[in-house]
Design a protein around this nucleic acid. Structure first.
Lengths: 187, 187
DNA sequence: CCCCTTGTTGAACGCACGATCAACTAGCGC
DNA sequence: GCGCTAGTTGATCGTGCGTTCAACAAGGGG
């Protein structure tokens, strides 16, 4: 197999594995088994596992963000878009990506390379949300001062809720609660 | 040394270690080294490491909760109390307990014994906060319907913010942002 | 047709993990 | 002072980790 294809296969095996079991399960051996390849070949294409883990994390959360933001932009107006984002992020069955995020925060406390990648992806989230809010301000749907901090609140609330859901601790209708809280802040 | 004292020493060594490096660093060997004891002795007093980790997690977060709630009850009135809780929980220098929480959520996704303990401690948080809110409702400081979900919102927001802080991703004055969000919800 | 490049492998190293168990030792009761 | 109980230890097992490297195999260029 050509190096490009083999690299792609290994990368996709790692991404699939991280979706199933989290980035903590990413080891040379598990990735190799998943790709149907000898462990040494994984190490050959990715000499540093730490860097590979950071790469897989980035790929997964970037794909998630693109998907969520694309769905949000199908809606018209600030509040429907925010409702869409909250609804999608809090949808059940997203535990796979949540586990990746929570493991990344935990591991990032002691792994600066991964932490830098996490900050980068969180900045991208913040900017994407700020862009949505800024459009609402321009359209006169909300005042700039009320909008300040809304993106950050959304991220903190959703991330906290999802972290809780990893141990199956959640109120009924958490999406409704989150929407009510955001509505109160946005006015 | 008597079994009771030895057990206490090992337990406290584990708790100190978890404060410094998180519960992921709790191994038979690291705890033994910290307690100045042979690894086998740790295994002797705590035959299952999974159970020991859950126990240490519970001890750490229960102590934190008692401390935070005691400080809150020094204040008078619903809003000052909530401001106290938010301020304490979002104070810098709490990364040690935050790391314990985030690692527990991550590990709890694949370790049901720990997950059960996490749920138990989160229930205790929820009940403690609900009690504060209920006092505010009784005192007429707030209507019952407005108060509904406030405890949960506070937990989700604070936990999300603290998770973010593990990779040093935080806005300036996050406590102020959190207080504003809660004020908007409480009316 | 042979060789040589290149993708790939198996084996090994050193380390760390939880768990187990026979052997040691200190101190108390007799 | 002797012996037994009970706390403690060192050694070891099996497993899994990242990393390294000599050796294998396949396929195209000369």
């Amino acid at each position: 197999m050509s190096p490009e294809l083999r690299e792609k296969a290994i990368r996709e095996a790692a991404i699939a594995l991280a979706h199933e079991s989290g980035i903590a399960q990413l080891t040379v051996r598990t990735i190799a088994a998943r790709a149907g390849v000898a462990p040494a070949l994984v190490a050959h294409y990715r000499p540093s596992m730490d860097a590979f883990v950071a790469e897989v994390f980035g790929a997964i959360v970037a794909a998630e963000r693109d998907e969520v933001m694309a769905a949000a932009r199908m809606a018209e107006g600030l509040r429907p878009r925010i409702a869409s984002i909250v609804g999608t992020l809090l949808d059940d069955g997203r535990d796979d990506v949540t586990l990746v995020w929570v493991q990344a925060w935990a591991a990032g406390a002691r792994n600066e390379e991964l932490a830098a990648r996490v900050r980068h992806e969180m900045d991208a989230w913040q900017h994407a949300l700020d862009a949505i809010v800024a459009e609402g301000v321009r359209a006169g749907e909300i005042t700039a001062e009320r909008a300040d901090g809304a993106a950050w609140l959304l991220l903190a609330m959703v991330d906290g809720m999802n972290a809780h859901s990893l141990v199956k601790w959640a109120p009924e209708d958490r999406a409704g609660l989150a929407r009510r809280a955001l509505a109160a802040v946005l006015g």
